[in-house]
C-alpha cells in the first residue's frame, strides 16, 4: 500500500503547475524515502526532475516501491478542486496499480472530496544525470529571474547568459533590437531573496531558448529564490528548492553558433 498525506495541498498544486506544461505525463517513482519524477519535453531538449522527500508529508507509508504513471493534465484538474490549505492524501495499491486515489480534506474538516485517476502506461526515456562540477552558480530572486526571462522574450527567442566575477548578464536580440540586463553580485546579503550571489570558478557564456526558461519559471511560486548552475560543456540547471524537503530541477541544453 502506498499512502502519503500532505498537510499543505497547495504545495502539490504548485508542483503540478511547475511540470504539466513541460511534461504531459510522467512516472512518479515512490519508495520509502521520497517521491521522484523525471520527465523530458517531447523534443528531449529540456528535462525536469522533482524530488519530494517523505519528511514533507505528515504521514507517509510505502510498503513496496511503486511507480505511478501520471497524466499531469488529469492530476492538475483534480488539484484545481483543492484549496491551498486542504490536506491532500495520495493512495495507491503497491502491486501494479492501475489507478491512484486522491482525497482532499478541507481545513475545517467539514468537506471531503475523493477522486480516482487512472494511471497511464508510459514508456518514457530516463536520462542518467552525472554529478557535475559547475563553473558558475547564480543564486537570485525567483521573481526577478521570471521577470528577466519574460522581458527578454520580447526581444528575441534566445538569451545569452554571461557570468563574470562581478556580475551576470542576460542578453537577447531580434528585429526589435538588442536588450541587456546586468545583475551585479550583491556585496551584502541582507535579504536573501533580493540579493544576487555569483559563485564563479571560471567565466561562462552560454545561450538558451527562452521558450523553455519561461516554462521553468512556472515553478516561481515554489521558492523565493532560484539557483542557476552553468558550465560551458553542460546543460543549464535551474533549481527551485521545495523548503528543505525537496527540489524541482530543470535541465536545458544550450544553443550553439552553427
Amino acid at each position: 500500500m502506498f499512502e502519503a498525506k500532505l498537510q499543505q495541498g497547495g504545495l502539490l498544486k504548485k508542483i503540478l503547475e511547475s511540470v504539466k506544461d513541460l511534461v504531459v505525463d510522467g512516472l512518479w517513482d515512490c519508495d520509502g524515502a521520497a517521491i521522484t519524477l523525471q520527465g523530458m519535453d517531447s523534443s528531449h531538449v529540456a528535462l525536469v526532475e522533482m524530488l519530494l522527500r517523505a519528511e514533507a508529508f505528515e504521514h507517509y507509508r510505502c510498503d513496496r516501491n511503486v511507480t505511478l504513471g501520471m497524466n499531469h493534465n488529469h492530476l492538475s484538474k483534480i488539484l484545481k478542486c483543492a484549496n491551498n490549505d486542504d490536506i491532500v492524501i495520495l493512495k495507491a495499491a503497491d502491486q501494479n496499480p492501475d489507478s491512484c486515489s486522491l482525497i482532499l480534506e478541507s481545513k475545517n474538516g467539514e468537506k471531503t472530496s475523493d477522486f480516482v485517476v487512472s494511471l497511464v502506461r508510459i514508456d518514457t526515456d530516463q536520462l542518467g544525470i552525472p554529478e557535475t562540477e559547475y563553473s558558475a552558480h547564480v543564486k537570485m530572486s525567483s521573481g526577478e529571474f521570471q521577470r528577466i526571462c519574460r522581458d527578454l522574450s520580447q526581444f528575441g527567442d534566445a538569451v545569452q547568459i554571461t557570468c563574470s566575477k562581478q556580475d551576470v548578464k542576460f542578453s537577447s536580440s531580434g528585429e526589435t533590437g538588442k536588450a541587456n540586463i546586468t545583475l551585479t553580485h550583491s556585496a551584502t546579503v541582507d535579504k536573501e531573496e533580493e540579493s544576487v550571489t555569483v559563485d564563479l570558478k571560471e567565466p561562462v557564456d552560454l545561450t538558451f531558448a527562452l521558450r523553455f526558461l519561461n516554462l521553468f519559471t512556472k515553478a516561481t511560486p515554489i521558492s523565493d529564490t532560484v539557483t542557476l548552475s552553468l558550465s560551458q560543456e553542460a546543460p543549464l540547471v535551474v533549481e527551485y528548492k521545495i523548503g528543505d524537503s525537496g527540489h524541482i530541477r530543470y535541465f536545458l541544453a544550450p544553443k550553439i553558433q552553427e
Binding site: 528531449h44 531538449v45 530516463q126 536520462l127 542518467g128 552525472p130 535541465f251 552553427e258
Partner: peptide, 14 residues
C-alpha cells in the same frame, strides 16, 4: 544562426 542541442548530447539514456 544558433542551433539547439539535445540533452542526449550530454547525458546517457538509462
Amino acid at each position: 544562426k544558433q542551433q539547439q542541442i539535445g540533452l542526449s548530447h550530454y547525458y546517457d539514456f538509462l
